[in-house]
Design a protein around this nucleic acid. Structure first.
Lengths: 145, 145
DNA sequence: CTGTGTGCAAACTCTTTGCATAAGT
DNA sequence: ACTTATGCAAAGAGTTTGCACACAG
């Protein structure tokens, strides 16, 4: 029991420091979201899912706050928004340089593991522009017979 | 004048054959949209823009028809939907293997020209999945001082 | 004629916004 | 106390849907 309590406190402390890193006030909601997001390893979440998860974890917050927080975390560099076609925005807790599978049908995003993808012949940015990032998305579909 | 009329007819014929290629009935609306889409070279259009263009070209149609047609053309392989982050879907009249710049701010899509980008270390599709395509999106922002 | 396509308006999803209230420092 | 964040509900963008009417084969 003491262990559980300690883990709980430690996770909370980690989450809080994440929020402080982002120069945001460590409010209950932001700490709870940071905990959910960064407790487990790499995650790809949409706002609704994260909201549902927070609610079912007993956190009292609103969907608008989830959107606010996701954007604040993204701006602070704690999260990355993923470029996939479709109406929904996914956020990735893995900020390091990597790319994604997008699965048609369930519309889910997965990290590509097993060796870094290389992009060759990367073009120059046009005059007056700078490259923010390079996203590679490999679109998958369930194999038909 | 005769030239203009002939060009007009020829374009219309081309557009119609595009529609037939897609195994769709060559209705007035679909032919008009095909003409607008494929008359000029490569284009990246959203539904609303295409609708506006059609309307200002004197075509009488509805936005819903534009959406229907874009999806039908995409399914038929005449167009490709582009994976960019954000709420809006862009369609590309260039079906060949190429990739895109996405410009933050104006939220526009541009083809990457000047040599084909290569992707190395392309991973296997996971069990039971097949690769539909590989999209590379280079996100740009206006250079700050 | 017969069936598919279209137009319209309403519904729907995801996301943002405005403002009164609550909470952090 | 002072300021910033939150909750709520409403608005907003983009897209889809259902059904009566119109048009192509």
């Amino acid at each position: 029991m003491a262990d559980l309590a300690q883990n709980f406190c430690e996770r909370r402390r980690n989450a809080e420091s994440k929020v402080r890193t982002a120069k945001l006030r460590p409010t209950r909601q932001r700490i709870a979201l940071a905990d959910i997001l960064f407790r487990k390893g790499d995650r790809h979440v949409g706002a609704e899912e994260l909201y549902a998860e927070a609610v079912s974890a007993g956190v009292n917050l609103s969907l608008a706050t989830v959107y606010n927080t996701l954007h604040q975390f993204t701006t602070a560099g704690l999260l990355r928004a993923i470029a996939v076609e479709g109406s929904k925005t996914y956020f990735d807790t893995n900020i390091s340089d990597h790319h994604h599978f997008f699965v048609e049908g369930p519309n889910t995003v997965m990290d590509i593991t097993g060796g870094p993808i290389g992009v060759t012949n990367l073009p120059e940015a046009p005059e007056g522009m700078e490259i923010v990032n390079v996203d590679v998305v490999i679109r998958l579909r369930p194999k038909r017979s």
